[in-house]
Design a protein around this nucleic acid. Structure first.
Lengths: 155, 155
DNA sequence: ACAGGTTGGTTGTAGCGTCAAGTATTGCCG
DNA sequence: CGGCAATACTTGACGCTACAACCAACCTGT
């Protein structure tokens, strides 16, 4: 027997869907307009920029960016063609490949970051109270724990 | 001068992104597997099923489903080819078109609903306390108010 | 030392979404 | 009442993602 959602659960769910559907569009269009980047591309570059030596293995980068390996592989190809990253075979494991941020890639993230952070602030952080930001952290973490238990333990 | 995110804000933001990136995939794959429907297609049918006479204008349906008119138009074409909805010109306004759920469309939503609700429960509602569900409602509403102020006032 | 299985990654294709342009109808304003 | 703008949608082309098939390198037990 199906346990349906009561009024409160349904209301929360409907709002969450709305955010999930609309937020990516807002992020993408700001970044595309101001930095010729997808939000996902930005996130890839951002994760690399924070990694030691600005290098990560494909698999590690994929989990950090919440993507499948196939998706990341396609995007890495495009970013490599644009000169923002370089792929090199991993010396320790012949199967693996390392992705590293180039100088041009670094400049691109640095240039894009302020505009992006401003959009995030305006649309997500600033409309919330400090307490709500903290609640959002716990809530998203709880949900993420179900969506992919491994995603939480890794970083 | 850019106001960067502090640790707490950043932590919340990173978790939110993870949910926003991963949740659609989970919903889509369950529905595709069990009902041959995209989550967006399901949502379109669901919104129609709750409307008076199971009919809505394209624009109204688009805002209810958080989509652009172009996206909805493409999806409506596909759903119409599958016999799940019908499009008819609106008598009162020659520019508008009404989308209505067919009997087959109704059967499809009814058949898909239990599995979908179960997935939503497992991945989103049940991992949260009742208080968190309530907090999520407020948080998502606040964010939505910025993403698209009109989306909140309409329904 | 090697067969079988697992892990890491790439590629092709088909489908969905966005963007820009186009059509048709309505409303408004002089 | 004529013209111009706004509204409501449709369409086509292009780009990105998911899915599945694939290959290569590693690892394990025997």
């Amino acid at each position: 027997m199906t346990r349906w959602l009561d009024d409160e659960e349904l209301a929360a769910w409907v709002r969450l869907i709305a955010v999930v559907e609309r937020l990516p569009g807002v992020l993408d269009s700001q970044l595309r307009r101001d930095a010729e980047l997808t939000h996902f591309e930005y996130y890839v570059l951002a994760m690399l920029s924070e990694a030691p030596d600005r290098v990560l293995r494909m698999t590690a980068l994929a989990t950090r960016t919440n993507a499948t390996l196939a998706r990341l592989s396609h995007v890495a190809s495009r970013l490599e063609k644009r000169g923002l990253v370089v792929r090199t075979p991993c010396p320790e494991d012949g199967r693996a490949t390392n992705v590293s941020l180039t100088a041009a890639g670094w400049d691109t993230v640095v240039a894009a970051a302020p505009g992006h952070v401003t959009t995030v602030r305006e649309n997500v952080i600033d409309p919330l109270t400090r307490e709500q930001v903290h609640q959002l952290h716990s809530i998203a973490e709880a949900i993420l724990g179900r969506l992919d238990p491994q995603a939480l333990s890794a970083p």
